[in-house]
């Protein structure tokens, strides 16, 4: 790996959860480098810590020990406030259950991250429209989540994730709730974003066929990296 091209640098990361008096070690001594522009899949049995790792890279949680550096910036020791701002700028999130606001229509859902910027209302509207076009949902701007199919909702989710032009796109089981056909469409979309726009994507999945779409797959088990498979 070319050192200068490393976007994500995880070193010596431990993560311990406290459940009452019990301590659960989810990650232990993890090292990981992800170059810019990679499409990475994380796989492993449940409890392996893959989602936890995703959270740490996305700044949604902090490691108990070790460092997480993204684009040269250390995020594990940032204050909550700075971390929020960092996430707004650098991370796009795609969830298994879409997590759209049911009270907002598709366009407003996509605009949500833009509320955190200084853009004017018309600018926000424009960018949201562009993002929705990229995911192929221009004709559904005004629809509410309950009026959209699962696949369509996930595409809105992706549009929301890319509307701020983030450094990283993190997807947690993005096709987990979709049928084969819809899932494939989503994976096509992700691949296109990675290939045509150079987006760095980290995707957690338990579906081997989905992982095949990535350029590299990492297997985790009991909080440690087991295997690496490169396409």
């Amino acid at each position: 790996m070319n050192e200068n091209n490393t976007l994500v640098d995880v070193r010596g990361v431990d993560k311990v959860f406290k459940r009452g008096s019990e301590e659960i070690h989810v990650l232990g001594g993890l090292d990981l480098q992800i170059p810019d522009g990679e499409f990475l899949a994380l796989m492993g049995p449940s409890g392996s810590g893959k989602s936890t790792l995703l959270n740490l890279v996305g700044g949604l949680d902090r490691p108990t020990q070790g460092s997480v550096t993204i684009g040269g910036q250390r995020i594990d020791d940032m204050s909550d406030r700075k971390l929020a701002g960092w996430r707004a700028r650098h991370v796009g999130l795609v969830f298994q259950f879409y997590n759209l606001m049911p009270v907002l229509n598709a366009r407003k859902n996509v605009e949500l991250p833009l509320l955190l910027t200084k853009l004017s209302a018309s600018e926000r509207k424009k960018r949201a429209a562009i993002a929705l076009e990229i995911v192929g949902l221009s004709h559904r701007l005004g629809h509410f989540p309950r009026q959209l199919s699962g696949g369509e909702q996930q595409r809105v989710g992706i549009a929301r994730a890319i509307v701020t032009d983030p450094t990283l796109l993190l997807c947690d089981e993005p096709t987990g709730d979709l049928d084969r056909k819809a899932g494939d469409e989503i994976l096509e979309l992700l691949q296109a974003l990675n290939r045509d726009q150079g987006k760095t994507i980290i995707m957690v999945t338990h579906d081997q066929l989905a992982a095949n779409r990535a350029s590299r797959t990492l297997h985790l088990d009991k909080g440690r990296l087991e295997r690496e498979v490169t396409v």
Partner: peptide, 16 residues
């Protein structure tokens, strides 16, 4: 709870 967590994930601050 979930909705608010998503907002925070997107980048809304605690104060926000």
């Amino acid at each position: 709870t979930n909705e608010l967590a998503v907002l925070k994930a997107i980048g809304f601050t605690n104060t926000g």
